[in-house]
């Protein structure tokens, strides 16, 4: 087993020793999104939220959150931040977006500062608006970008085609097809069901020829997209349990007929062409779906 870096020999938690690492310039960008009503966004813009200036409070809260990270997150080093910048974007459709950029020159990454800043900003936003919209909720907290460490430059991709080993997020796919021309969006969700051909299924393992799967999904998208139809797809890899999302396809178009047709064409093409395989686990042990000797 790989040694756990944040436990000592006796198994106790520790802040890992980075004393020998080179100091480098580190940058991280994180984003939190809070869903609320269009009326609340308008009230924030107009400065009529009873509690006061939401944007100013969120900005200060995010900065404070970033600076206090090492006190809140147990195994984080205290970092000497050189820069924290907060962008608060008000989407008139009812989303407050808080983007925190944190920088330092140091021996360890600054992403937890950006993430904590975004999180605290989101909670402060909720606190400011809960009097006018109790149903508001934090939609997401995520790292968008990170650079400066040994792990290289990370940028979260939000492309039209995605192949991921973590839980699929329907919103990511919807975001990729969102357009002002769209009057209809159709989403297809493929989930793991508990049976196949009359027998019970407990787990599916998805394997992909990654680079070709992405290229082939893009080719499917390019071939089906026409006019104002916009498509996106995200597919899972790895072990999936019953009920988990295996694939998300979305199609947007000015009118629903085209959106339905394109979504259907996309999932059909993906199932037919994209080099992804699944191993089904059931009572008779694992087997690769559709893998059988052919009659000679």
């Amino acid at each position: 087993m790989k040694a756990l870096t944040h436990l000592d020999e006796a198994g106790h938690a520790r802040v890992v020793d980075v004393g020998d690492k080179e100091e480098t310039r580190r940058v991280a960008v994180a984003r939190a999104r809070v869903a609320t009503t269009a009326e609340t966004i308008a009230a924030i813009r107009d400065g009529t939220v009873p509690k006061g200036d939401v944007v100013a409070v969120v900005r200060v809260a995010s900065i404070t959150g970033a600076k206090r990270t090492s006190e809140l997150i147990p195994l984080c080093h205290p970092l000497a931040l050189t820069h924290v910048a907060v962008d608060v974007v008000l989407d008139p459709r009812g989303v407050i977006e808080i983007v925190v950029r944190a920088e330092c020159v140091g021996r360890t990454g600054v992403e937890m500062e950006a993430m904590t800043g975004a999180s605290v900003g989101a909670l402060a936003a909720y606190d400011m608006i809960k009097g006018v919209d109790r149903t508001a909720r934090v939609l997401s907290i995520e790292l968008l970008e990170k650079s400066g460490g040994r792990s290289g430059h990370f940028v979260r991709e939000r492309s039209q085609v995605m192949l991921v080993s973590h839980r699929l997020c329907v919103d990511d796919v919807l975001e990729a097809v969102a357009r002002d021309q769209a009057g209809a969006t159709v989403v297809f969700l493929g989930t793991v069901r508990d049976h196949a051909e009359g027998h019970a299924v407990t787990l599916l393992e998805y394997e992909a020829y990654g680079s070709m799967a992405l290229a082939e999904m893009q080719r499917c998208v390019d071939e089906i997209e026409a006019g104002d139809v916009r498509l996106a797809v995200a597919h899972r890899t790895g072990p999936l349990h019953v009920g988990e999302l295996a694939v998300v396809c979305a199609a947007s178009a000015p009118h629903r007929q085209d959106a339905f047709a394109a979504a259907r064409a996309l999932i059909d093409a993906i199932k037919h062409r994209v080099p992804i395989w699944k191993r089904e686990h059931g009572v008779e042990g694992p087997r690769w779906v559709d893998w059988k000797e052919q009659p000679s």
Binding site: Y206, K271, V274, W277, W288, D290, W291
Partner: peptide, 10 residues
Amino acid sequence: VALIPPVAGG
């Protein structure tokens, strides 16, 4: 060159 068995995505 990849040998592609019957695909089963989705």
